[in-house]
Each structure stands twice: as C-alpha cells, then as structure tokens.
C-alpha cells in the first residue's frame, strides 16, 4: 500500500495521488493541473460546476448515453449488426472489458504479491536468522561446555587428583620393598631407628634429657 502510494507520489508528479486529492478541494482553492508532457489541462473539480463547462459536459454525457442506447438498439433490437462479429473484430478491446480493465490482476501484482513476499521474508527472518542465531548461540555454549569439561574438569581437577592417587600408590609400592621378611634386617632397623630417634631428640632438646621444657 505504502509502496504504491510512494510510486504515485514520486514518479508521476502530474498525475500523482496528491494532485488527485487536491483537485477535490472547494472552488477557488486549488489550481488546474497542467500536465507538462501533454499540455493537457485538468480543471479542478469545483470548476466543473461553472455553467460554461457544466452545459457542455452535461451535453457530452447525455449524448454518450444516447449513443450507447442507439448502438444497443442497432445490435440487439433491429439486428443490423452482429454482436459476435463485433467481438471478433475488436478482440483486444473486448478482452480488456471482459477482464474488468485488468484491475483484479493489477491489485494482485500491486498489493497481494508484495504483501505476501514481505510476509514470507519476515517469517524466514524469524525461522532462519533469529532462530538460527539462537541455535548458533546454543551450539556455541554447548561446545564451550564440552571443551571446558575436557580441559578443566577432566584435565586439571581430575588430572591433579589422579596424579596424587598415582603418586600415593607408587609410594606404597616403593615402601613394600622394605618388607623383606628377614628378621635380622628388622632388628637392624629397630637399632638404627632408636639411634636416629636419640639423635633427633638430642638436636631438638639440646643434648640433655634433664632440661626443663
């Protein structure tokens, strides 16, 4: 609708919508429209009631009606002319009238098709662009989440915990080698341990057990 109005407004200045509406103003307010390309003068509507125009216009209208009446009588009353022959002879004009001046097709092209095109565009924008953006964001968040899970959770947090667990187990395995089962080795460990214990306590307490704490 706006598209058509714009077309009429801008591209056809002489026959534009504005001028058309202007010509319906009361007498003396608007001006006659002169079309630059045809030198035709279109008087404004109020002037058509002045008696010099009025008489001739009325006469022309009446004579046109009379001519139509006469033609109809010739063709269908006196049967001097054949309607179907006239139709074949003036085929393009007949088609024009039959198709109601192609107004329906004009409306279809001017209003119906653009509106439906724009409607389909907006629906497409919704489904593909806006929803596509939402889905892309969602997919992005999911991939960040997967990467984060792999890197941070499984990599760093679980990784450090597993590392500690492995080292603890390795330490346990290492310490198993001390268990030889040989009694003399165990007695040696007791003796060595006692000596080391005395040395450590001596270092901490200054070589005297009698010292007060």
């Amino acid at each position: 609708m706006l598209l058509v109005a714009t077309v009429c407004w801008i591209w056809l200045p002489d026959l534009s919508l504005a001028n058309l509406l202007e010509s319906a103003r009361p007498a003396g307010i608007s001006r006659n429209q002169a079309a630059a390309w045809s030198q035709m003068v279109v008087p404004d509507e109020a002037l058509s009631h002045h008696h010099e125009v009025h008489q001739i216009a009325g006469l022309v209208a009446f004579c046109t009606a009379l001519a139509g009446f006469l033609l109809a009588t010739i063709m269908y009353g006196w049967r001097k002319l054949d309607a179907s022959e006239a139709r074949q002879q003036f085929e393009p004009i007949y088609q024009f009238f039959k198709k109601k001046w192609w107004f329906d097709e004009l409306y279809h092209v001017l209003f119906f098709q653009p509106t439906h095109s724009i409607a389909r565009w907006f629906s497409w924008i919704d489904r593909s662009l806006l929803d596509g953006l939402i889905h892309a964001i969602a997919a992005g968040v999911r991939s960040i989440s997967r990467t984060w899970d792999a890197l941070a959770d499984r990599g760093i947090v679980d990784g450090s915990i597993n590392y500690f667990a492995n080292r603890t187990y390795a330490l346990g395995l290492l310490l198993r080698r001390v268990q030889t089962g040989r009694l003399r080795q165990y007695v040696m460990f007791i003796a060595l341990g006692t000596v080391v214990l005395f040395i450590v306590i001596g270092l901490l307490r200054g070589y005297s057990f009698a010292q007060l704490p």
């Binding site: 509106t115 409607a119 565009w121 919704d126």
Partner: peptide, 10 residues
C-alpha cells in the same frame, strides 16, 4: 508490522 506480516505467511 513484523508480527502482522509474519502472521500472514503462516
């Protein structure tokens, strides 16, 4: 405007 046009295409 958007809602009206989109409704027409459904």
């Amino acid at each position: 405007v958007y809602g009206a046009f989109a409704a027409m295409a459904q």
